[in-house]
């Protein structure tokens, strides 16, 4: 296959970026998209030009490190597929492909196609956990968890934190990511003690960094794990309840 690539190059966070065009002849359809970029980089190095920086690690769609806008689509054209699992057989010979980094104010560009997604970690640090000191856990079978709850929690917990939902959203909102994290824990009996504080703190931290959700649903379309929009609805409902519950709890706190 012969591919023509238009790639975003930017030397640093504050530098001005630009598109550069690279011809990529002799591409095998069996290659993954990132292996195609590896080959382009090998050829760049051979020609004495700096290779394109892009993020990738596990290359099996689970670590969430990779993520490219391919022809304007987060993770490219294939459904339920992270960039590293996309293969060149999904493209046709002679195709022109535009490759950009995730585009969102909350994800500043580090270099070329690499962005900084630390804002997602800040949301988790705000409350995306169940406080369970090591050593204090009861026997795992003490609390039965209905299979349906465990399965639903697992559906949410499958999120790989890649940020495609944010990149795909016209508002750069992080509702799908946050909802997945919130509902994974809120759906489980073990997560009930911190349910309302978790919900409020995670949602409000999200809003410090990201845009607002207006229900486009692009996030779900781009999600490599097909996380359901239902979780956003559940989170919104929990958030309303959390506001009331937390206010009530604040009122019940003894002063002095």
């Amino acid at each position: 296959m012969h591919i023509t690539l238009k790639v975003w190059r930017q030397t640093g966070p504050d530098a001005t970026g630009r598109f550069e065009t690279y011809e990529a002849p002799d591409i095998s359809p069996e290659m993954s998209f990132l292996e195609m970029l590896d080959l382009v980089n090998e050829r760049l190095i051979e020609a004495g030009r700096e290779p394109i920086e892009f993020d990738s690690d596990c290359r099996e769609g689970i670590c969430g490190t990779c993520g490219l806008m391919i022809n304007g689509q987060a993770h490219g054209p294939q459904r339920a597929t992270a960039t590293c699992q996309l293969h060149m057989r999904e493209f046709s010979d002679g195709e022109h492909i535009t490759v950009e980094p995730w585009r969102a104010a909350a994800f500043p560009i580090v270099k070329d196609l690499v962005v900084n997604r630390a804002a997602l970690d800040r949301i988790v640090e705000a409350g995306g956990f169940i406080t369970a000191r090591v050593g204090s856990a009861p026997d795992a079978n003490l609390i039965p968890v209905p299979k349906e709850s465990a399965d639903a929690a697992m559906d949410a917990a499958a999120c790989i934190g890649c940020g495609a939902c944010v990149a795909a959203c016209p508002n750069s909102a992080a509702q799908l990511f946050t909802a997945a994290k919130v509902q994974h824990l809120n759906l489980l009996p073990q997560g009930q003690a911190q349910r309302w504080s978790r919900t409020q703190e995670m949602v409000e931290t999200m809003e410090l960094f990201f845009g607002s959700c207006t229900n486009y649903g692009e996030c779900h379309e781009a999600c490599p794990k097909e996380i359901s929009l239902d979780f956003i609805a559940m989170m919104n409902r929990d958030y309303v309840k959390a506001m009331l519950t937390n206010r009530q709890r604040d009122g019940q706190k003894k002063v002095g």
Partner: peptide
């Protein structure tokens, strides 16, 4: 297993 379950790891049930 006890620790992971308490943390909310959604093991198969």
């Amino acid at each position: 297993i006890d620790q992971a379950t308490a943390q909310g790891v959604p093991f198969a049930r």
